[in-house]
Simulated assay, not measured.
Amino acid sequence: MAMGGEPVIGDWYMAAGGDTFEVVAYDPDDQSVEIQYFDGAVEELDLDSWHEIHASPIEPPEDWSGSMDVSREDSGLDDILSAHSLNSPLDDPEL
């Protein structure tokens, strides 16, 4: 996590107003920063605006799915886990 200054793609921050967001793109040549709030809204800031919001690095939220708008059912995680049970491949007589 960056400790102030330039934004780091993939890091989470909290603005002085309390909004939390992840940096999803940063172009130092264009001096633009794209952020995605936890609710999924995306905003592009110029580098001056980035410095004006006084963003402080924070730990990522435990429930990362908020910004992705993905429920457990939509993620397919249950299907993956049931397809890859704890059985050994050697237990399959077809092998």
Rank of each mutant, 00 (worst) to 15 (best):
H54C: 12
S71N: 10
S75N: 11
P89A: 11
E22Y: 01
L45P: 02
S82F: 13
S75C: 13
I9V: 15
D27S: 04
M3D: 03
G17K: 04
D30V: 09
P93K: 13
Y26K: 00
G4W: 04
H51D: 08
Y13K: 00
D91N: 14
L81F: 03
G5L: 09
E44H: 14
A41C: 13
P89W: 09
D92H: 06
D19P: 00
D46M: 08
A2S: 15
N87I: 09
D63A: 12
V23P: 01
E73T: 08
G40C: 13
R72Y: 11
S65C: 14
I9W: 00
I9T: 05
G18L: 05
A55Q: 04
R72L: 07
P57N: 04
S82T: 08
Q36P: 03
W50A: 06
L95C: 12
L86M: 15
S88Y: 11
S85L: 08
V33T: 03
I58N: 13
D11A: 14
D39L: 08
P28A: 09
N87V: 06
E52Q: 14
D69L: 00
S85V: 06
V23N: 00
S49G: 10
G4N: 13
W12F: 01
S82W: 07
Q31E: 08
M68R: 15
M14S: 15
D69A: 14
H84K: 15
E22Q: 03
D48G: 07
L45A: 05
D69G: 05
